[in-house]
Design a protein around this nucleic acid. Structure first.
Length: 930
DNA sequence: ACGCTCACG
DNA sequence: GACGTACGTGAGCGTA
């Protein structure tokens, strides 16, 4: 049947369908090889629904899906900036594009694209031809650029809202009839497609002018008649630009097409072809549904193929500081916001006066929307130092910070705009202190950490060098170093801008590179559940801080100073001369040269070793080593804790705000810095008193919850040691049980000495035990230690198997894994020499330590929802412990809920064969809570 | 800048 | 067969 009267042509805007499917659906990957297929899946579902619903009197007789092809079109020849601010295609989407063509063909729907032409022009030409032939046309799209085609039997259908758009609909949108839509667009321009239009004229004004003058040509010819002087001048001055804009927005209705309308006649799908395609994409549900409808057996499910190598990514233009813009007013900022709204992704970086987020003041913000497209917004740069009177004045050429933040806020909080940062926790906190909650976020540092943990560092300079082959401007070039260092607000704007914008540019490029690789590395779940959600959680903990009683610390410092002075006198007397007790070098000379105590040189530097274990051994020979040990303990407590901690009390909050590095430790553990609150003393009575300085405010208490023996439990599970598992299930003393198994001592006759040995072995196993290490730890002969280990492996052969298997896996794959899929790379595992031993033990330890780290991360992410409604704040994490501050009335409720979260944190992803047990305590200070 | 020592899990 | 060793961190100090 030839196309003519009574026929109905449906034209589907394929690209719009794909983008919508891509953005509307969560990332989905093909199981066998990790290929992203979310957009294809959504696209197929839409096509299926389309086919299903296309029935009745209004049904299409002809249909085609039209795609764009190539980025350079005849419009670029007219205007090189056309669609210049259109973002690059997301990396996840790119590989799906060819498959959407295949999908269309699999549905046996005509699939058309012509190199160098936009889909819109093909749609326009087909619509015009169909109209001329006397048929009806429905364009399935919501693109306003297509509205100029409406009328005379051509309609649009917004597939999203299922809303028909006819003449009235177009008038609603543009204020004119469809045949004048291009005139309005030519005047108003389009920021998304980068059509210039007339400056200062939007759709409303344009429609008004066209209504008044009848057409664009008429308007331009009679522009002198316009009453408003400014508007008149704009139209006269920009005539050429407006005429160009019209050419850009006017669709080509008369293209040469290598096919005709008759080729688009509706055909039934070929069942086998369609099912083969869907099955190849591994869409189980859709395959079954369509097979059922077609009355066919669904094809056999495809088995997983081996890991495919990553395809190469296209090369971006090199980083060029000259392309960056300095944004100095609201108008310029608005252009960036429009651009961001169109792309939905932006890299953000803040410049501040300090590395301490709790004291840092915002100085400027940089943004990047695509490679090479970046800007710096200076906000609080000051005029140069030196001049005492002028030094605090704001430098000229900056927009008011309030204005900028209020303009940025909707974007930063917009759930539809992804904010990408490098170490986003920093920027998150800076914005949070200004009342802006940045969400959603991605973090390039964490993307790298999830994929390449153990291979290299994840700082921006390292990542830029490695993945972009680019050396970032060192911050020292701007602010100097050491004594002459200045804060960033003292850097001239023109010097700051290239540095700052570069950071955003680099971050954006890294994101494009690293994000799509997540699924190929099979760590999407790690990133999405263990890394990314932790950013706001840790930010809140750090901002909350813990209350520290300066008085307590100060008094202790005084006491320590006195005791140290007394000890020092005694030490000098015993040594026979005064010397610096804090100098290991001088101490070594006194002990081994002057007093001739036994012990020798050690270390590459040739210096005597004077570590605690050596001094303890020497304590039987002479009184001096014991005194040194006492002095050292006091010195450590004073300098590292009672003195230094006071300097970390924030003057505004009166609290201590640590910072956690999420990507610091290779195993997945957090690390705490500035100050480190994960190594506050607890093992000695004297040290433990420092914890009395960590307090809760009036009416509140500190609650500590810690996992009992979590690493040994995980070892028992992973290695499958029945006796250990049973002991944990029965709640028995695990070290006593081990001792009983090894040495044949009944539990009721267990001595502390035997138990201590078993405990050392249990821990040794976690660390990758060796005879030498155990011997040193227990201070027993090496042969004896080796005998213990042999016995241990005899009683628990599963442990030996775990260690061997893990090392074998590491050698084969260059990495090990936690139960939650975190990958820890072991690049040195195949090294020769002493390094090999280290790498082996690290490989044995990493899955155990790392799984425990994953468990508590999961608990932390879930904690907020689980404790909602309780006036409680999570303050600290110490590897297997969480510390909270809570109103004293609610402490018990908190313990109950937090314990439930922690003990079930492994579920539902990992079902452990041992129970996780959490001990809890509460008190006015950390010593009491523990 | 680096190594030593020692605080924690 | 020798080598040198417990795993993972961060901070302060002395020494170059």
């Amino acid at each position: 049947m030839g196309f003519g009267k009574g026929c109905h042509l449906h034209l589907i805007d394929g690209s719009a369908y794909i983008f919508r499917a891509f953005h509307a659906l969560p990332p989905l990957t093909r199981k066998s090889d990790g290929l992203p297929v979310g957009a294809i899946s959504g696209f197929c579902n839409m096509l299926d629904r389309y086919v299903e619903n296309n029935s009745g009197a209004d049904a299409a007789t002809h249909v085609a899906v039209i795609f764009d092809k190539g980025s350079h079109t005849f419009r670029n020849d007219m205007y090189d900036q056309y669609k210049a601010n259109r973002s690059e295609m997301p990396e996840d989407l790119r590989p799906q594009i060819p498959l959407t063509r295949e999908a269309t063909r699999a549905f046996n729907i005509a699939c058309e694209e012509i190199e160098g032409f936009e889909a819109d022009d093909i749609i326009a030409t087909l619509a015009c031809r169909a109209r001329e032939a006397g048929g009806r046309v429905t364009i399935l799209s919501s693109d306003k650029d297509l509205m100029q085609l409406v009328g005379d039997g051509v309609e649009m259908l917004d597939p999203m809202k299922n809303k028909r758009i006819d003449d009235d609909g177009v008038f609603e949108k543009f204020g004119v009839a469809p045949n004048r839509v291009v005139d309005v667009q030519a005047l108003a321009g389009d920021s998304v497609d980068n059509v210039p239009g007339a400056p200062g004229i939007g759709i409303k004004t344009a429609a008004q002018l066209i209504q008044e003058f009848g057409s664009l040509e008429e308007l331009l010819d009679r522009a002198e008649e316009i009453k408003q002087p400014k508007r008149r001048q704009t139209l006269i001055d920009n005539r050429a630009q407006i005429e160009l804009s019209k050419k850009l927005v006017k669709l080509d209705c008369d293209m040469e097409l290598p096919f005709g309308l008759d080729d688009l006649e509706i055909r039934d799908a070929v069942a086998d072809d369609l099912l083969e395609f869907l099955n190849r994409m591994e869409f189980r549900t859709l395959t079954r549904r369509i097979a059922d409808r077609l009355g066919k057996e669904p094809p056999a499910v495809i088995e997983a193929a081996p890991e495919a190598d990553a395809p190469d990514v296209p090369e971006d233009a090199p980083i060029d500081h000259a392309t960056y813009e300095v944004v100095r007013d609201a108008e310029a900022l608005q252009v960036w916001l429009d651009r961001i709204a169109a792309t939905g992704v932006v890299a953000v970086d803040t410049e501040t006066t300090s590395l301490d987020e709790m004291r840092a003041d915002l100085v400027g913000i940089s943004l990047a929307t695509e490679p090479g497209v970046a800007c710096y917004i200076p906000l609080a740069h000051r005029t140069g130092g030196g001049d005492l009177f002028d030094s605090d004045a704001l430098a000229p050429g900056q927009m008011p910070m309030e204005t900028a933040l209020e303009m940025l806020r909707p974007m930063l909080e917009d759930p539809a705009v992804l904010k990408v940062g490098q170490n986003m926790k920093y920027d998150y906190k800076i914005f949070a202190r200004l009342g802006i909650l940045v969400d959603p976020i991605d973090d390039t540092m964490l993307l790298s950490y999830a994929q390449h943990g153990g291979l290299h560092g994840h700082g921006m300079d390292a990542l830029a060098d490695r993945y972009l082959n680019h050396q970032c401007i060192p911050i020292k070039d701007l602010i100097g170093s050491g004594k002459s260092q200045v804060t960033f607000d003292r850097v001239e704007i023109d010097r700051a801008a290239p540095y700052a914008a570069e950071d955003a540019d680099v971050t954006l490029r890294l994101h494009r590179l690293l994000k799509p690789r997540l699924h190929r590395a099979r760590v999407t779940q790690v990133y999405e559940t263990l890394e990314r959600p932790l950013v706001p959680v840790l930010a809140r903990m750090e901002m909350a801080g813990i209350l520290v009683d300066r008085q307590v610390l100060s008094r202790m410092s005084g006491t320590f100073a006195q005791k140290m002075a007394g000890l020092e006198e005694e030490i000098h007397a015993k040594a026979g001369r005064p010397f610096n007790v804090g100098s290991p070098k001088q101490l070594g000379e006194i002990l081994f040269d002057e007093l001739s105590l036994p012990g020798g040189k050690k270390g590459k530097t040739g210096a005597y070793s004077t570590g605690a274990d050596i001094l303890e051994d020497l304590a039987t020979e002479h009184e001096l080593p014991g005194l040194i040990l006492d002095w050292r303990q006091l010195s450590k407590l004073k300098s590292t804790y009672t003195d230094a901690l006071q300097d970390h009390i924030n003057p505004e909050t009166g609290r201590v705000h640590t910072s956690y590095s999420i990507a610091g430790a290779n195993t997945g553990r957090l690390a705490s810095t500035d100050p480190n609150l994960q190594n506050i003393p607890v093992r000695t009575e004297e040290g433990r008193r420092i914890r009395q300085a960590f307090v809760a405010p009036e009416g509140r208490v500190l609650v500590a919850l810690d996992y009992s023996q979590i690493e040994l439990r995980i070892l028992a599970h992973i290695a499958g040691i029945d006796q250990l598992k049973q002991a944990f299930k029965d709640g028995h003393d695990i070290h006593a049980m081990t001792a009983s198994e090894m040495f044949g001592v009944p539990l009721d006759q267990m001595t502390p000495e035997v138990r201590r040995k078993a405990k050392a072995i249990n821990f040794g196993v976690i660390y990758g035990i060796s005879g030498f290490g155990l011997a040193r730890n227990l201070r027993i002969p090496r042969a004896e230690a080796q005998a213990f280990i042999d016995t241990y492996f005899e009683r628990f052969p599963g442990i030996r198997a775990y260690m061997d298997d893990t090392v074998k896996f590491a050698k084969q794959h260059g990495r090990v894994e936690t139960l939650f899929g975190r990958r820890i790379h072991t690049p040195d595992i195949n090294a020769s020499g002493p390094g090999a031993g280290f790498a082996k033990r690290a490989a044995i330890n990493a899955p155990i330590q790392g799984t425990a780290a994953d468990v508590i991360r999961r608990a932390m992410v879930r904690m907020e929802a689980a404790t909602r409604g309780i006036d409680a704040k999570m303050l600290l994490q110490v590897h297997d412990e969480l510390l909270f501050e809570v109103g004293e009335d609610e402490a018990e409720t908190l313990i109950e809920r937090a314990r439930e979260v922690m003990e079930g944190a492994n579920m539902p992803v990992v079902d452990l064969s041992v129970p996780l047990i959490v001990d809890a305590g509460q008190g006015a200070n950390w010593a009491e809570a523990h």
